[in-house]
Design a protein around this nucleic acid. Structure first.
Length: 454
RNA sequence: GUGGUUGUAGCUCAGUUGGUUAGAGCGCCUGAUUGUGGUUCAGGAGGUCGCCGGUUCGAGCCCGGUCUUCCACCCCA
């Protein structure tokens, strides 16, 4: 007999975990709906051609591929086998044509392109589904995890970005976080910074390094930049420019004078000023303008967002940004989109670490009815029906066992109340109502029970 | 994908230079209490030492492989 196991990086969710996860999901979903987002679901698998080439080379390596059904070697000829010994990936198109989704953004882009004539733009959708990555698991990093995305497609209005800042604040407050960190930046700001220090190479040579600032500090980032073609003078000028600050008018003016003039600077400052106007809460301490925030800039073209919970030991719990041409690869160009994505699994880990799940770890029912024999058990079933009709969540202990066992069970499951119907109670149409927390109990008429429990 | 790390009872962990029958705490079950839990007391069950192979008279311990866990890199929710 073999012991059953789960694939690496996947987990079961038992009743406790699922109730906690649903709390997170429902909270986010409610906030999204308050901002007018509509639900969308797409299949777990997509055509490999839809997925590949969208996440860079490393992303392609992290895709889970699905082996073709039946004789999956049918399409492979002899020459290919020889080639495959050198480069196994060359076989891939012949043996696999589907893959598991890697995120929710590319499926959204595919959906929008396929249904462009039925949708009303701006198209606002949210999507809460699992995604899969063949990454090596660690704490806060899984191979199957859930994302909660919200995106707006078909407008470049900064009202969307402003909404997302507000959504962040509402979600984190609703989940009970007293401290959270929302960081924003703008791609044009990074371009303007590169121009200011006189760097003309590809922007990613700057961003992939500065994104690691919180991890390896200026010492490490400086070394990496210099090996990427920056002079030590440019590095020290970057060090002065790349600050983090509250998003105040003063800071924006400070940037205006520090950056050298150009198109990127104008674009960035105009966007920042407009976002400020639209978002009164933006200069709260929870929101910062972090010029070193870069993320995977491959497709982001405007504002970038990232959110995390300080001191949780977990990386970011959400990320997002604007991408001007996401649907371009599927043949629909000139459509701008902006979106964010919460990672439920990481939010869960943060909330667990901070003990924020207090209320959900109780049984579904409020009261457990206990009894001694078939006659009193039947009576309990009758009482239970009446209580449920009054909207009280009620359970009848299913087996006929010692009262001790029934109380023990009630205690372990955490019912706030139990009711006992024995010989005496049966004859007098009463019930022993016991508060499991205080231990107090009293005999009450069955007809009064639901009033007392409300 | 690269380098490292972890795995012993349901859980958290001991386990001597390789030596007889692998332990503890907590949890679980039974009873003290045939109508009262969360306290106490008495007793009990539960382990192919992750898996496969090797070395040895003998392996939980040494060696190889594999799976898993966690960590760093890469990247990311």
């Amino acid at each position: 007999m073999q012991k059953p196991t789960l694939p690496k990086g996947t987990r079961d969710f038992g009743p406790v975990e699922l109730k906690r996860r649903k709390l997170i999901i429902n909270t986010i979903q409610n906030v999204y709906e308050h901002f007018g987002f509509e639900p969308l679901e797409t299949p777990a698998m997509e055509n490999l051609s839809t997925l590949t080439g969208k996440y860079g080379d490393e992303g392609d390596a992290l895709l889970f591929k699905i082996l073709n059904s039946g004789d999956f070697l049918k399409k492979v000829d002899e020459g290919r086998f020889q080639q495959a010994k050198e480069n196994p990936n060359s076989l891939l198109p012949q043996i696999s044509e589907k893959g598991l989704r890697y995120d929710l953004t590319v499926p959204l882009a595919r959906f929008v392109v396929q249904h462009q004539h039925e949708l009303q733009f701006p198209f606002k959708r949210y999507q809460i589904q699992p995604v899969w990555r063949a990454d090596r698991p660690q704490k806060g990093r899984y191979r199957e995890f859930w994302q909660c995305d919200a995106d707006v497609i078909g407008t470049d209005s900064l009202v969307c970005e402003s909404d997302f800042v507000k959504i962040y604040q509402l979600v984190f407050n609703a989940l009970g976080f007293t401290s959270y960190d929302i960081r924003i930046n703008h791609r044009s700001l990074l371009e303007a910074i590169a121009q200011t220090v006189g760097f003309n190479g590809p922007l990613t040579q700057l961003t992939v390094s500065i994104d690691k600032l919180d991890k390896i500090g200026w010492e490490g980032v400086g070394k990496e930049l210099e090996s990427n073609g920056f002079t030590s003078d440019q590095v020290s000028r970057l060090q002065v420019l790349l600050t983090t600050s509250r998003c105040t008018p003063e800071f924006i003016e400070q940037l205006a004078s520090a950056l050298s003039d150009g198109e990127a600077k104008d674009r960035a400052l105009m966007a920042l000023r407009e976002l400020r106007e639209l978002t009164p809460g933006i200069d709260q301490a929870s929101v910062s303008l972090d010029l070193s925030l870069a993320r995977g800039l491959d497709y982001y073209t405007g504002f970038i967002f990232e959110a995390s919970i300080p001191d949780s030991g977990i990386g970011s719990v959400s990320g997002g940004g604007r991408y001007d041409n996401l649907t371009g690869v599927f043949g629909l160009s000139g459509v701008s989109g902006v979106g964010i994505s919460f990672g439920i699994d990481r939010l869960y880990d943060c909330m667990d670490a901070l003990g924020l799940f207090g209320g959900v770890d109780r049984p579904t029912a409020n009261i457990l009815l206990c009894h001694f024999d078939e006659r009193t058990r039947t009576k309990c079933a009758e009482i239970a029906d009446a209580l449920r009709a009054d909207g009280i969540k009620t359970e009848v202990y299913p087996d006929i066992k010692k009262l001790r066992k029934q109380l023990d069970y009630a205690n372990k499951r955490g019912y706030p109340f139990i009711g006992v119907v024995g010989e005496e109670e049966f004859n007098q149409d009463t019930i022993q109502l016991k508060n499991m927390e205080s231990g107090d109990q009293s005999v009450v008429p069955q007809s009064n029970l639901s009033k007392l429990l409300k």
